[in-house]
């Protein structure tokens, strides 16, 4: 970026390939908690759904 007058050195590294795996796994966890209705987890989904039910509504995710 050309705009800042004083460039501040960042200590952040480049990304390894497995960062994609991390993101995919994290998004799956979010999906399992907030959206899973039986497609990926089958029978367990009902339990997961009921347990996290308040959280789904509270975070504004569509729910029945």
């Amino acid at each position: 970026m050309a705009s800042p007058a004083v460039p501040v050195r960042s200590r952040v590294p480049g990304l390894p390939w497995w960062s994609l795996v991390v993101v995919a796994a994290a998004l799956f966890v979010v999906y399992a908690v907030l959206q899973e209705n039986g497609v990926a987890l089958g029978q367990v989904a009902q339990v997961v759904h009921e347990f996290f039910h308040d959280g789904r509504h509270a975070l504004g995710v569509p729910c029945h």
């Binding site: 991390v22 993101v23 796994a25 994290a26 998004l27 966890v29 979010v30 908690v33 907030l34 009921e50 347990f51 996290f52 039910h53 308040d54 959280g55 789904r56 509270a58 975070l59």
Partner: peptide, 18 residues
């Protein structure tokens, strides 16, 4: 379910943090 509501946002928070 109230506990589940808190647990949901904690789990989502950790995943979102990653």
């Amino acid at each position: 379910q109230v506990v589940g509501g808190v647990a949901a946002v904690v789990v989502v928070g950790i995943a979102l943090g990653a």
